[in-house]
């Protein structure tokens, strides 16, 4: 039996950059029709194979409106990975992305995997953020980076595969167990306040 690992992933980024679109594309655009629990368009799951493990992504979409930004810590606590999205046609959104990265470094879970998605790459003719800028920035912070198009289903799968690969494999002593393994559990406990 293959081990299933549950991975909490949260999406961050400016409003309108296409976070919800990316999630929808990733979750629904696949032949795998096993019924996955969903809370509207904001919480979805999808299981993908990775090596000899199965990764079940528990995807937490966040509210994009400015007034909800202060709630973000509640959403990224306990996350194994964060997908931070910017719009390649909007320089501002790339700026916001950097702020998110900074916040995650400071307040986010330790060892969180960060993936940067430059969305709307189908609109490269009105591009404002050069690919190179994103690549360089990602390197400095040790993050995955990929340009995506939710509209045209470009690099969406790859984005999540990239995340899967970054997740450290199970420790050997845990291999004997079957069933569900929680990731980011320790970090959850650390960030939680007193109890």
């Amino acid at each position: 039996m293959m081990a299933i690992r549950e991975l909490k992933v949260c999406l961050l980024g400016d409003t309108g950059v296409g976070k919800s679109s990316i999630v929808c594309r990733f979750v629904q655009d696949h032949f795998d029709h096993n019924i996955s629990p969903t809370i509207g368009a904001s919480f979805m799951t999808k299981t993908v194979p990775c090596g000899n493990e199965l990764h079940k992504f528990l995807i937490w979409d966040t509210a994009g409106q400015e007034r909800f930004h202060s709630l973000a810590p509640m959403y990224y606590r306990g996350s194994a990975a964060a997908v931070i999205v910017y719009d390649i046609t909007k320089q501002d959104s790339f700026h916001t992305l950097k702020k998110w990265v900074k916040e995650l470094k400071e307040h986010g879970p330790e060892n969180i995997v960060m993936a940067i998605a430059g969305n709307k790459c189908d609109l490269s003719d009105i591009r404002e953020v050069p690919t190179k800028d994103a690549k360089e920035y990602a390197e400095t912070i040790g993050a995955i980076v990929v340009e995506t198009s939710a509209k045209n289903a470009i690099n969406i799968e790859e984005l999540f595969q990239g995340i899967s690969r970054q997740i450290p494999p199970l420790e050997t002593h845990e291999n004997g167990n079957s069933g569900t393994i929680k990731l980011g559990k320790q970090t959850t406990q650390m960030t939680r306040r007193c109890c």
Partner: peptide, 13 residues
């Protein structure tokens, strides 16, 4: 703890 990260956790959040 099995709820962590799941939909119940999400709703509670």
């Amino acid at each position: 703890p099995a709820n962590e990260g799941g939909k119940h956790d999400f709703l509670l959040t």
